[in-house]
Design a protein around this nucleic acid. Structure first.
Length: 795
DNA sequence: GAGTTTGAAACT
DNA sequence: CAGTTTCAAACTC
């Protein structure tokens, strides 16, 4: 896989171009601090910035650090300093490459990272601060207010995964540069409290701009800011008209990229859930509400969305985990105190390889894997440097890559510059349109992540107060909104994986028995595992174990549920028969659960059983194996017949049972995947649509990439009301699974290619697949692209 | 919360 | 590759 990716990447003109460019440029460091004085903007970012964004930003900084010697946190920080704010994009790119060397061979990159800009140490510190500002959430404040190092650490951790190591260090050792850094962050955060936010002014400015462009837009914008319902959607819609078709296309692409990037959110590592909470910003909640409104998910409880379990910030947790996982390679360096000798075992080269592999190979089923399309990101950044046209082209290319690449590697995302960029991309896209108007002048900045933007904007643009700046701000906001929307969808997927909590006792969380490990995420506080090694501090061990497992089964970390493309006619007969557009890659082997309980992976994944399943007495509400395919099996036939014969009452009963099960899940507040996803997707409808939801989620989770088209943002009618009683289960499944599943995730349908053993192997190629075009028209659809397929070969 | 059931993962 | 064991989630009480 890696090879494939690399080859493409290298071959691409873009890549060459990038190589030719010197990634690192001494920069004119803009002192954010000063800028910050203008509170108004500081708040702004926070509002739009999702927690993820914040983390991204941080992660970004952290990432920069990563390259530097782990043993010397300071140096790492310093490295980050070099780059000026304006040039962040470039920097990002560089870092990304460094992180993902395999993807991008350019030497220059590595060098750049290597450079130690000690001079700008200050810069680094400031950045974090800014970030902190960005996160206007109460949580941040809380963390700050605590005034304790722990608080600072937690916050920092929450903000960025990269910091984690440092944070841990600090906590453990009690002193380090990292600590100082954290303290500075905390201080900045404290300051921030006093500052208060100029959200109002920001809005007003933005509104003005919007008005300028479009009265409707301004109104919508206001609504977003002030009204919870559908504001985002309306806002987005109002803005859309301004964009040319090309822009729109770009935007879509961008969105996709962003999504990927967003996922990456750097996480904090750690063991402490508090980290996650700390970073959760109010803004985020606000945005969530808006998004929910847009999606019709008002019914969904915030808790569900944000927390795997009460008190936990899912997003944070996810990010953190993911980051840890994927980032492992990068972070290792930074991990001074890694207890595990094993960690040392891996050479850097190995690490790099690992990273690459990860990038290439979709590791986790959980959305995590999906997130990482670093390469794409890198390109994206590079694109910034290039002309807008180039940018567009690159973007598309990247997208293609990204899709193919599975996120598996959280690490990738975390490390990649992209992480921070999720928003950035969006902004960029939106910016692109703007850019045309304004020129390329701000292109770079625009490209920068929305997350970053806050700081940048505050410093540069806002200070200047030029109309352009404002406009830029608006674009940024717009992008942020899009980002949020995307996030929302992503969450569905991510959540699933992210929410995982394990209770391992003997596996040390280093086996697939461990849900966290299997999902490619680190265990976090909520886990009740014992002797857990699935933590950032043991990242080496984790990676080594992962490798080992993957060597045994390349698809081990691939998403278990493969989402197929739209239920389009493509499927032909099958389409009618098969309700689900998604399938479990290997199929289940249930014997007693009738595929009606979560014991069944298919059911758990919200997908119907397929021919690949070896289950007995399948009654999977999402689709029986017999129903879906041509199953020639006797059993299947029998079942099919059975299904046909089934009385409505029976069906109804099943549904009820399913519902009950779902309810139970919900009650238990389990973060379990399906639920989350389903919720989000099913948002429009009451949470009662249980089964369907599940199906949805899977998709997102793991490795899939999510593609969202703006057009339908507001109204993803993902789930239709269940018409449960109707036809057989299949029918039901179809109704429920509808768009999400159907959405074309992968043209390939991927449904399963049966392995010799009858085990399912998802078709490799398909997964990537769906051409953007397909999706484009669709409402918001989260596509999960199973990364593993493509990856497999490489291994 | 403890105990049981279940089926995937791991092992032989 | 099949059979067995181990494991942890899911489920039940």
């Amino acid at each position: 896989m890696i090879i494939t990716f690399s080859s493409r990447f290298e071959d691409s003109p873009v890549f060459n171009y990038i190589n030719s460019l010197s990634p690192i440029k001494p920069v004119k460091s803009v002192h954010i601090t000063q800028t910050f004085s203008s509170l108004s903007f500081a708040s702004l970012p926070s509002v739009f910035t999702s927690p993820h964004v914040s983390s991204h930003k941080e992660s970004r900084f952290l990432r920069r650090h990563n390259p530097s010697d782990p043993s010397k946190p300071e140096s790492s920080l310093e490295s980050g300093n070099k780059v000026s704010v304006n040039e962040d994009a470039a920097e990002f790119y560089i870092n990304a490459e460094e992180l993902h060397e395999s993807c991008v061979p350019g030497d220059s990159v590595g060098e750049a990272s290597a450079e130690p800009p000690s001079e700008h140490s200050k810069f680094v510190i400031e950045l974090p601060r800014n970030l902190k500002y960005d996160c206007g959430s109460p949580e941040c404040d809380a963390a700050t207010s605590c005034g304790t190092e722990a608080g600072c650490e937690s916050e920092a951790a929450a903000l960025s995964a990269p910091l984690v190591p440092y944070a841990q260090k600090t906590s453990e050792n009690g002193s380090s540069d990292g600590e100082a850094h954290l303290q500075s962050i905390c201080q900045s955060g404290q300051r921030r409290e006093g500052t208060g936010c100029d959200w109002e002014s920001l809005i007003s400015d933005a509104t003005d701009l919007l008005i300028f462009d479009s009265p409707n837009a301004s109104e919508a914008f206001r609504g977003i800011m002030q009204n919870p319902l559908d504001s985002v959607t309306r806002f987005c819609n109002s803005l859309m008209p301004r964009l040319s078709q090309n822009d729109i296309n770009d935007e879509q692409n961008v969105l996709v990229l962003d999504t990927v990037g967003s996922r990456e959110q750097p996480e904090t590592e750690d063991p402490s859930s508090q980290y996650g909470e700390a970073s959760q910003p109010e803004d985020t909640e606000l945005m969530q509400d808006h998004l929910n409104s847009c999606m019709g998910s008002n019914q969904i409880e915030k808790e569900d969305q944000f927390n795997c379990k009460p008190g936990l910030n899912l997003h944070r947790g996810l990010r953190r985990r993911c980051l840890d996982f994927e980032t492992a390679g990068a972070r290792r360096k930074s991990l001074d105190n890694v207890p595990n000798s094993s960690s040392s075992m891996l050479s850097q080269s190995d690490e790099k390889i690992t990273t690459n592999d990860k990038q290439l190979v979709p590791i986790k089923p959980g959305g995590e894997s999906a997130r990482c399309i670093l390469p794409g990101i890198g390109l994206h950044l590079n694109a910034l440097a290039t002309t807008s046209k180039d940018y567009k082209t690159i973007k598309r290319e990247n997208m293609a890559y990204g899709r193919q690449l599975s996120l598996p590697n959280l690490a990738v995302s975390a490390h990649s510059p992209t992480a921070g960029q999720g928003p950035g991309h969006e902004s960029f896209s939106s910016a692109s349109s703007e850019r045309d108007m304004d020129g390329t002048e701000n292109g770079v900045q625009l490209l920068q992540d929305a997350s970053q933007e806050p700081a940048f904007l505050a410093n540069e643009e806002f200070n200047q107060n030029s109309p352009k700046k404002k406009r830029h701000v608006l674009l940024t906001i717009y992008s942020s909104l899009n980002y949020y929307v995307m996030r929302k969808f992503e969450q569905a997927g991510e959540t699933e994986s992210s929410c995982k909590r394990c209770n391992c006792k003997k596996s040390k969380c280093l086996k697939l028995y461990c849900e966290c490990f299997a999902a490619g995420v680190y265990c976090i506080e909520p886990c009740s595992c014992q002797e857990c090694f699935n933590k950032p501090i043991h990242e080496d061990t984790v990676l080594a174990t992962r490798k080992q497992i993957e060597s045994r089964n390349p698809l081990a970390f691939a998403p278990k549920v493969i989402r197929t493309a739209d239920p389009v006619p493509e499927y032909g007969e099958e389409s009618s028969k098969t309700p689900a557009s998604a399938r479990h890659k290997r199929g289940c082997n249930c014997k007693k659960s009738s595929c009606l309980k979560k014991y069944c992976e298919c059911y758990q994944g919200g997908v119907g059983c397929s021919i690949s399943c070896r289950c007995e007495g399948c009654k999977n509400a999402f689709g029986r194996k017999d129903g879906s395919f041509v199953g020639t099996e006797t059993e299947a036939d029998e079942e099919e017949t059975e299904a046909c014969d089934k009385s409505v009452a029976e069906k109804h009963q099943q549904k009820n049972e399913i519902q009950r099960n779902e309810e139970q899940r919900q009650d238990s507040a389990l973060p379990s995947t399906p639920l989350r996803l389903s919720r989000q997707f099913s948002l429009p409808f009451s949470s009662k649509n249980k089964p369907p939801r599940s199906s949805t989620f899977n998709i997102g989770s793991s490795s899939g990439l999510y593609t969202i088209t703006i057009q339908k943002l507001g109204k993803p009618n993902i789930l239709r009301p269940e018409s449960k009683l109707e036809g057989h289960n299949q029918a039901v499944a179809e109704d429920e699974m509808p768009e999400i599943l159907q959405g074309d995730g992968s043209p390939s349908t991927g449904i399963k290619t049966a392995s010799p053993n009858g085990k399912r192997v998802s078709p490799p190629n398909n997964e990537f697949g769906p051409s953007p075009g397909r999706r484009a028209g669709r409402k918001l659809i989260l596509q999960s692209i199973p990364s593993f397929p493509s990856l497999t070969p490489q291994h």
